[in-house]
Amino acid sequence: MVILKLDNLTKLFGGIVAVSNVNMEVEKKQIVGLIGPNGAGKTTLFNLLTGMYTPTSGTITYGTDDKIVLNNLRPYSVTSVGIARTFQNIRLFKDMTVYDNVRIGFHHNIKCGIIPLILRLPVFYREEENVGNKAMEILKLFNLEDKALELAKNLPYGDQRRLEIARALSTKPKLLLLDEPAAGMNPNETKDLMKLIRWIRDKFDLTIILIEHDMSLVMGICEKIFVLDYGTLIAEGTPEQVQNNPKVIEAYLGGEE
């Protein structure tokens, strides 16, 4: 079943083509890799998917049963329909606690208005308690519960990466976008991360798209890979198919002029 479909997606910045006529279909519950040389348009594609940029042309359709066109949604609406993301250069709320970082993610699921909040009506306490419990559950799954009250900026790097994933999961996504989750990790940490990614996919019933330069990770866990170069999709398929695709080899190693 297809959960995400891109039709002729194009994004221009001024005269520069960042993403050009990309057609993609992502199957539900798959782990999908998005690779390509630097500047190929991978992060731009994520930004288009999450509403941070508006496509110049083409459409993004999301959902299995009810199909939603994401083109003109603001990022927070994209999140509330079930797409969450992490950032290439970790964007945690650094001066907030680990616990609060995760609690933020539950925001759009809270059913309590501003007036009951100010008047401290019972519904407010109920909702907050509910959020608090769920946040702690997620932190436990990530072994971060002991650090719940630390400020996010004080966590070690690896924990920050994992916290960002935990925070993304708290928005209850169906599709999770990971932007270079293994950046800055050593081979052992990368191995743990691979396990973690597989595990959250099964545990939370997710579809995952990840951008990654670490080929051991991409080839190790991705069931399908899309390759971008200069904003165009140059190849797609299983890890083996992509690895043997001459266009991909040329894009990475540089062809003969």
Partner: peptide, 11 residues
């Protein structure tokens, strides 16, 4: 703290 991340968290 970070408006872009905040928006991405559904706010």
């Amino acid at each position: 703290e970070d408006e872009i991340a905040s928006e991405a968290m559904g706010i």
